[in-house]
Design a binder for these strands. Structure first.
Length: 843
RNA sequence: GCCGCGGUGGCGGAAUGGUAUACGCGACGGACUCAAAAUCCGUUUCUCGUAAGGGAUUGAGGGUUCGAGUCCCUCCCGCGGUACCA
């Protein structure tokens, strides 16, 4: 090729085709946004507020992988659109930084957890920065900052003062590896959720929050959350586990059968049941091994050594062994211990069995083997009688648990299950032998941990005054420095070794006292952080009430479904408490909730160091750019669904941006942006391709706006791809039409859009621009493809005018050769025309 | 077991009861190139047929309807939650 030709080509290349170079433009726009304060949220604004929130991350040492930002990208897309639509948007970010990994790292490397945490935060922040988010970093929060946890401690004190935080010595879940107690919510199949080791049940002094007091409100208020996924609400309902039943008293019997030295007549075993209608079918009563009654009855139990042995066994069994591994039920008869049937007065044998849970209901059950599967299994094993009281099944082979008509049931005979229930409850109430009772599966929240890296519990123990709250003026109780972070394993935290810190004065009597050395669980700080973003530097209050009233509740909350029965339970509880003490104005913190689907690795497994399949966003951005990453993650599938990463898919996203970039070559550069009037249909020839473009453009504006609102990013992008395809068919594209495209693309690919916007001759950021409105007239197409169905099968398609009348359609289709062929000379029985879609001919 | 969600091309997926398979990926063919990559154009559910055209198809089977991926019933499979909760 002659030299001059090459030169000419090069010149052409530079003149018209500045290449899309994300590396260069992304950095530039990120600093531009920072400089111009695009992301800064104003507390004083006339605009409607929009508070959109991500579940804040735990800054782990591993850094971000490509799955983390998926949710943040989504909120960023929504935030940017809302901004352009004229909302005052709050879109903050912070760090849930207390927790075990940082502490374990500290133990292994003798580095203060704060040092490691700060380093991790810096890494995370740098990584997030590269993706081009609108986070307002002036509101950054960190749960480990004393200025932050001051208010976590403050809330604890308010709970303590109102009796909602209390000390308990009940058996708790102890993780022998992490050497700390755990809440029920921290367990997975009876194992520690963190390390997977089976937990033991140990009685230990613990701080507990009375979350059960809020169980009913938390349950009922789920109905006030129409914009929450039903799946999450259902999980919470199950977790709270409301069960309406009856507690029934079985007096201990002093009969000849159970001969003994008096005193038993006043004692009762109280059982909980949801089937009082089967009371006449009771053939024995079972109490849990932990039931205190066992000790009290010791001298009356004739086979005590056998019972004692059983109790020992039960004690050493973990919950896991009691459930998963121990399929077969075990138990032991309490020889000589009987109760009286509340109605018939009949003597009933009492058993101990670990299939009865100590911490649910009353820790005792009335066994009705004929109508309960567990009781049936137990009765078969120990050869106990089975008495049928509800007709309908064959109780010799299996328990009949369905409803039916009562038999062998005295005054309940012939009644239906629900009538029998009612009648029995009435009888029990009249005879003071029982009453309606509601039980919850939800347990009070075990709130103390025997670990270092958490908020100190602001309590002082005084020999004279007991547990005394630290005065509010002395908050925060700062976490002291220690030499050794290792958990002691004795049930005390490493803080117990720091005598200087532990020994203090009683705030009440000034006498010698010791500080509480347990710390709070990781969930404490995250239970209210969304309030702190509103007012992060406030030292006088948890949050300024006026500001809270403006910003609360969170309009949109996005995060993983794994928090359904942990963080989201705790946060709702915490918030309701703050509402009750007047600290906040709203009763539910999160109006709308959306779950993010995981990004799996390319091999279909979870991304994990262990499998070596982790993809780092830094590498992706380096190679393809942040906007490609953003587009791809929003396009890869339905937002809430788990989808495997595909590098090819990512490349496809980049290709899309490249193609849009090259559409610039088709721009009609004839007119300046100002002088050009908006194109309307009247100016274009309907037969012109341009008309179709305008139709697609306006359809796309509508679809993208709606889809972003509904988190249907994949279809929004698909529609924009169609628009791009339509544009690339054109000879020329007007600047106006291209500008509209760039605007709706901007939330997804913000750097990219800013660059094109600049190239279109605009001086200000595209995000200060008003979001395009779609024109419903322009979105309508001139013609449509009419499908002709004959007996339900499409036999012909005809291009017709959009406004065609029904009569004209009917006339038109009869002219079709294909229609005639399929009619085979028969007369149509019926013709149905669906406007703008199809016509259905029935022969 | 119970509760919830889902099952659509080779793959990710799209579809207010109205032309199933949009969009993307991959694959195949072509253009450009000395060549490759990139890019661009075309084909791509399966099946019979040279073609025109026909038939089948949304986990399986029934039903409602002019018309069903979508609604109803029965069942199978997968995922998530929960689990001796009386």
């Amino acid at each position: 090729m002659p030299f001059c030709l090459i030169l000419a080509k090069l010149i052409l290349l530079f003149a018209f085709m500045k290449k899309y170079n994300p590396k260069e433009i992304e950095k530039r726009w990120q600093s531009f946004w920072l400089k111009k304060g695009i992301n800064k949220t104003d507390n004083k604004s006339d605009k409607p507020k929009y508070y959109i929130l991500d579940m804040f991350p735990y800054p782990s040492g591993a850094g971000l992988h490509v799955g983390h930002p998926k949710g943040y990208i989504a909120t960023d897309v929504v935030a940017r659109m809302k901004m352009m639509q004229g909302s005052n948007v709050l879109h903050p970010m912070g760090w849930d930084a207390f927790g075990l990994p940082a502490e374990n790292y500290a133990i292994a490397n003798k580095v203060h957890p704060k040092v490691a945490t700060d380093k991790n935060i810096a890494t995370f922040k740098k990584q997030l920065g590269k993706i081009g988010f609108t986070h307002d970093w002036s509101r950054e929060i960190n749960t480990t900052d004393p200025k932050y946890y001051k208010w976590t401690q403050w809330t604890f004190l308010q709970m303590f003062k109102r009796g909602l935080a209390y000390e308990s010595n009940e058996p708790v879940n102890w993780c022998p590896v992490d050497k700390t107690v755990l809440a029920n919510e921290d367990l997975e199949n009876g194992c520690c959720e963190r390390c997977g080791s089976p937990v033991e049940r140990r009685p230990m002094r613990q701080w507990v929050l009375r979350i059960t007091k809020y169980a009913d409100r938390m349950l009922n208020d789920l109905d006030k959350l129409p914009k929450w996924p039903t799946a999450i609400k259902e999980m919470q309902r199950n977790w709270i586990g409301k069960s309406e039943g009856t507690s029934i008293k079985f007096p201990l019997s002093d009969s000849p059968l159970g001969r003994g030295r008096g005193g038993l007549a006043n004692q009762v075993i109280e059982v909980f049941t949801t089937r009082p209608d089967t009371l006449f079918g009771v053939t024995y009563v079972v109490i849990s091994p932990e039931n205190k009654l066992v000790g009290e009855l010791k001298i009356k139990i004739k086979n005590w050594s056998e019972v004692e042995q059983y109790l020992e066994q039960a004690k050493t069994k973990s919950d896991l062994e009691r459930t998963e591994l121990q399929k077969e039920k075990t138990g032991v008869k309490l020889e000589g211990i009987f109760v009286k049937h509340p109605v018939t007065g009949e003597e009933i044998q009492v058993w101990i069995a670990d299939y009865v849970l100590a911490n649910y209901g009353t820790g005792a059950v009335m066994a009705v083997p004929a109508h309960d599967e567990r009781d049936f299994e137990f009765a078969k094993k120990y050869n106990l009688p089975v008495k049928e009281v509800v007709a309908g099944g064959d109780v010799n082979s299996a328990a009949y648990t369905e409803i039916g008509k009562n038999i062998n049931s005295d005054f309940l005979n012939g009644l239906s299950t629900s009538d029998a229930k009612e009648k029995m409850i009435t009888w029990l109430e009249e005879h003071n032998s029982g009453k309606k009772q509601i039980n919850y599966k939800l347990r009070d929240w075990v709130f103390s941990r025997q670990r270092y890296w958490g908020e100190p519990i602001p309590i002082v123990h005084c020999e004279k005054c007991g547990a005394v709250p630290v005065p509010e003026k002395d908050l925060p109780v700062e976490l002291p420095k220690v030499k050794n972070y290792e958990p002691t394993g004795t049930g005390e935290s490493p803080l117990a070794n720091i005598e200087k810190w532990v020994n203090t004065k009683c705030p009440k009597c000034d006498g010698p006292a010791k500080r509480e050395t347990n710390t709070m669980p990781q969930w404490a700080g995250s239970s209210w952080y969304y309030l702190r973003y509103i007012d992060p530097s406030n030292d006088k209050a948890l949050v300024d009430k006026k500001l809270e009233k403006y910003w609360s509740p969170v309009d949109f909350y996005v995060g993983g479904a794994e928090h359904a029965t942990r963080h989201l339970i705790y946060a709702r509880f915490w918030h309701k408490f703050l509402f009750d003490i007047g600290a906040v104005n709203y009763e539910e913190p999160f109006t709308r909730l959306q779950n993010v689907g995981l990004i799996m690795a390319e091999d279909g497994r979870k991304m994990s160091k262990r499998w070596g399949n982790v993809i780092n966003p830094d590498d992706v951005i380096d190679q393809y750019g942040a906007d490609s990453l953003r587009i791809y993650e929003m396009f890869m599938g339905p937002f809430a669904q788990a989808v495997a990463w595909s590098t090819q898919g990512l490349i496809g996203a980049r290709r899309f941006l490249d193609r849009v970039w090259h559409l610039q070559d088709k721009l009609d550069m004839g007119m300046s942006p100002k002088s050009q009037s908006p194109i309307s249909k009247s100016q274009t020839n309907p037969k012109d391709q341009n008309s179709k473009l305008i139709t697609v453009l306006h359809q796309t504006i509508k679809k993208v706006s709606d889809d972003i609102e509904e988190m249907r990013f994949n279809t929004a992008i698909a529609k924009m791809m169609e628009l791009a395809n339509e544009m690339s068919k054109q000879e020329k594209i007007s600047k106006e039409n291209f500008a509209l495209f760039v605007q709706i693309l901007a939330p997804f690919a913000p750097h990219f859009a800013e660059e094109l916007w600049l190239a279109l001759g605009h001086k200000k950021s595209i995000f200060t621009e008003v979001w395009p409105k779609y024109d419903s007239e322009l979105a309508k197409s001139e013609t449509f493809t009419l499908a002709v169905q004959i007996n339900g099968k499409v036999r012909d398609t005809i291009e017709v005018e959009s406004e065609i009348s029904e009569a004209a359609v009917k006339e038109l289709i009869m002219k079709s050769e294909k229609v005639q062929k399929w009619l085979e000379g028969k007369e149509p029985k019926k013709i149905i025309y669906i406007k703008g879609k199809l016509v259905s001919v029935v022969v």
